[in-house]
């Protein structure tokens, strides 16, 4: 991420903002080709969010899977604590953004009337304003991204828009990353399964050659040996194949 000139806290012009966003989106595109873990993406999203919106103190991402389990990443301890308060209370701007797929902006937690309990604990922690945007792909909301500031009125409509654009890219990236990881895992699982299946097939063949009635009878024999020896079925098959080839080797010199 390049240094941006807005560190002093002054608002930047919209031109600079869009140049910054372009750089961020380009970096996101490059990630797909390099390291494709969800953790890397979330970290990049947070880092970029803090850099893109200059009045931001901290940022965080909440991911919610199909079962409703939440995983969170945050740029600093303040964001972590503010998020923890939301999950404890079961309510807050970020959870609303995710659940209702809406953008939520709080200009000052001291005057905000929604989520009174969360606002009180956020004010105590030193947070004054925040924006939460849902991570949406298709019709599904997979989580939310939020930025926090220690000063009131830190965010305007332009920042909301910027964060929304940002969230759209991040959501697509996260879904693709998860799909890729799933596909890789399935491929690894399948190779493993086919390896075991192969040796079991060989063992069944050996048993049929020895007189077992058919495939099903051979399988039943393997199951029975597996139960008696408390050994996994594929391990029984492996040992059977080893003993078959051993017999063949020792029988070879005596052929007539």
């Amino acid at each position: 991420m390049s240094e941006h000139p807005g560190q002093s806290g002054a608002r930047r012009g919209s031109d600079e903002g869009s140049v910054e966003l372009t750089a961020v989106l380009r970096e996101m595109g490059a990630v797909v080709l390099a390291t494709e873990t969800v953790e890397t993406i979330v970290e990049l999203v947070i880092r970029s969010a803090v850099a893109t919106i200059p009045t931001t103190t901290g940022a965080g991402v909440t991911l919610v899977d199909a079962r409703g389990a939440r995983s969170v990443a945050a740029s600093d301890a303040l964001v972590e604590q503010t998020d923890a308060a939301q999950y404890q209370l079961g309510t807050g701007p970020c959870l609303t953004a995710w659940r209702d797929q809406v953008t939520v902006r709080i200009d000052d937690v001291r005057t905000e009337t929604r989520w009174p309990e969360w606002c009180a604990s956020a004010a105590e922690l030193g947070v004054r304003s925040t924006v939460s945007v849902p991570l949406v792909t298709g019709n599904a909301s997979t989580g939310a991204i939020k930025v926090y500031s220690t000063v009131p009125d830190a965010y305007d409509e332009r920042d909301e828009h910027l964060l929304t654009l940002f969230a759209q890219q991040a959501a697509i990236l996260l879904v693709n990353t998860q799909t890729l990881a799933d596909a890789r895992r399935l491929s690894a699982d399948l190779s493993h399964a086919l390896g075991n299946r192969d040796v079991i097939g060989q063992a069944k063949g050996a048993l049929i050659a020895q007189g077992a009635a058919n495939d099903e009878a051979a399988f039943a024999m393997l199951v029975s040996a597996s139960q008696r020896s408390q050994t996994k079925l594929h391990e029984v098959a492996r040992q059977l194949m080893a003993s078959v080839s051993e017999r063949r080797t020792s029988a070879a010199p005596t052929k007539d």
Binding site: L207, G211, A225, S226, R228, T231, Q239, L240, S243
Partner: peptide, 23 residues
């Protein structure tokens, strides 16, 4: 810990041969 499967395997092969002889 699981006992060795060799015994069970020997039995298995013997059973298969027995079945074939019966057939």
């Amino acid at each position: 810990s699981s006992p060795t499967a060799t015994e069970a395997l020997t039995e298995l092969l013997a059973q298969a041969e027995h079945d074939r002889a019966e057939g």
